[in-house]
Design a binder for these strands. Sequence first.
DNA 1: GTCATCCACAACCGACCGGTTGTAGGTTTG
DNA 2: CAAACCTACAACCGGTCGGTTGTGGATGAC
Lengths: 126, 126
Amino acid sequence: MQQIDDDRADARFHALSDRTRRDILRRVLVGEQSVSSLARNYSMSLTAVQKHVAVLERAGLLSRRRSGRESLARGDADSVRSVAHLLTELEAVWRERVSHIDDLLSAEADTAPVDAAPADSPHRKD
Amino acid sequence: MQQIDDDRADARFHALSDRTRRDILRRVLVGEQSVSSLARNYSMSLTAVQKHVAVLERAGLLSRRRSGRESLARGDADSVRSVAHLLTELEAVWRERVSHIDDLLSAEADTAPVDAAPADSPHRKD
DNA sequence: GTCATCCACAACCGACCGGTTGTAGGTTTG
DNA sequence: CAAACCTACAACCGGTCGGTTGTGGATGAC
């Protein structure tokens, strides 16, 4: 279960670690695009673009639907948001550390006499 | 210049695409850790952890400082935030598309008589 | 000084990545 | 129908990745 979350996170970050894939994702977030129309933007083979789209699809960052002979890709804004959320949680760990330091400081202030300035009003004499 | 931004984004997403590296980053965001103390948390060689730390350092997600015989790693919350910002920008592209659709809809509403239901109240007779 | 600890670096290995070419099948279009 | 187009997939190739072992050099503890 946790394993699967990690798998998904691995896949999403990996999918985002290529500039061509990020560009493709940007385009399909704006609107549905066929694989060939996407491929026309890049100086690589159609097969290469197909593979990039497949990587993004496996990561859940886009979905595809078949319309006649073409396969239309649409970006999934929710999954992009969920990756951003992972990073926010990471950064939150850091913020908690800061608040923990605050706790230590106020504990210090508790044990110390009230006259001792609690480190955020350093030299009031100025 | 744009190239360098892409290089950096590639490196950061790549660094984040491994669960061990994400865990290391979590730990060094809480507080400085030596490479060996980090390595004790994982069932892999010290050299492997060294390499993971090096990848995170090259991506700018952590920095190191030498203290005696040990090398202490500290997470860089700003760089984590900057990656989150990239994703927010991506998602913003999607939101702009939505607002563009809103524009189209209101333009339609302008040209159509007010009585014509604007496609989101399909059959009121029900 | 001796010994344990921490780190760096090189070499190697199997697996995966990003890209190519080639082949083939389904769908429009004329 | 034939021709053009869009996609799928297999096979291959050089390079990178994640991991290992081995060697060696600083630094700290006794």
